[in-house]
């Protein structure tokens, strides 16, 4: 299977001198297309830092991050932003929708940046919103939606642009059991049907249970890589 994510001896140190924290220590992983992977570990283990590296939001002190055969360390700031826009879908813990835009407008935002036509945007967004059970809520602002509904809009925003992979940082942390299960069902289905690659940084056992691969991190090192 095609490798879409690769890290080679990635190191990340926060601070310097005596207070320096080695957040990632020679981390090398490979993730292939269509994987449903969870990065797991206790707080401070480095899972979010690794997810940020993979998402091009942070740079390693040493080592390489290669996404779709492109070493992203070579990209300039604007090129990296464009790369994220075209290749990566983010789902954050706090949903992070734009409060003044409706569910539909939030969902189509990245596609607009990509210059996708109005007709295509409309078709894709309406279809996805219907799939995630938000039909009829298209014109609702985030403040008028529940946490679970907002997170589903955030997922639609990430998915609608058809990224190479989805990175999700604690996506279920603020959701109740029902919303969590609905969201995981949706992601799992997309993974199965569309062969979309998912990488989660999570504590949530429900997410870990559904993952096909679990990478355990501790003190910035990969301690276990479990394929299920």
């Amino acid at each position: 299977m095609k490798k879409v994510i690769e890290t080679k001896k990635v190191n990340k140190i926060f601070g310097d001198g005596e207070i320096a924290v080695h957040a990632l220590n020679d981390v090398s992983i490979e993730i292939s297309e269509g994987e449903f992977t969870a990065l797991v570990g206790p707080s401070g283990s480095g899972k979010t830092t690794l997810l940020n590296m993979i998402g091009g939001l942070d740079n390693p002190n040493s080592g390489n991050v290669i996404l779709n055969a492109q070493d992203i360390g070579m990209l300039k700031k604007n090129e990296m932003t464009e790369f994220r826009q075209k290749n990566i879908g983010f789902v954050f813990q706090a949903y992070n929708l734009i409060p003044v835009l409706s569910a539909y407008e939030n969902a189509e935002f990245i596609m607009l940046l990509q210059g996708i036509s109005s007709q295509e945007r409309k078709e894709r967004v309406y279809k996805l919103l219907e799939e995630v059970g938000l039909k009829g809520k298209e014109n609702n602002k985030p403040g008028e939606l529940s946490g679970g509904q907002q997170q589903r809009v955030a997922v639609v925003r990430a998915l609608a642009a058809k990224p190479a992979y989805i990175l999700a940082d604690e996506p279920t942390a603020n959701l109740d059991s029902t919303a969590t299960n609905d969201l995981l069902d949706l992601m799992y289905r997309l993974n199965q049907e569309e062969n979309m690659t998912f990488v989660f940084a999570t504590h949530d056992q429900r997410v870990i249970d559904r993952a096909k691969r679990v990478i355990y991190l501790d003190d910035g090192k990969v301690v276990k890589d479990e394929l299920r």
């Binding site: 826009q85 983010f90 954050f92 935002f109």
Partner: peptide, 16 residues
């Protein structure tokens, strides 16, 4: 500030 960060993270460039 947070929202700007999110928008930039999901691919909105600085000029937009």
């Amino acid at each position: 500030k947070f929202e700007f960060g999110v928008l930039n993270a999901i691919g909105t460039n600085r000029f937009d």
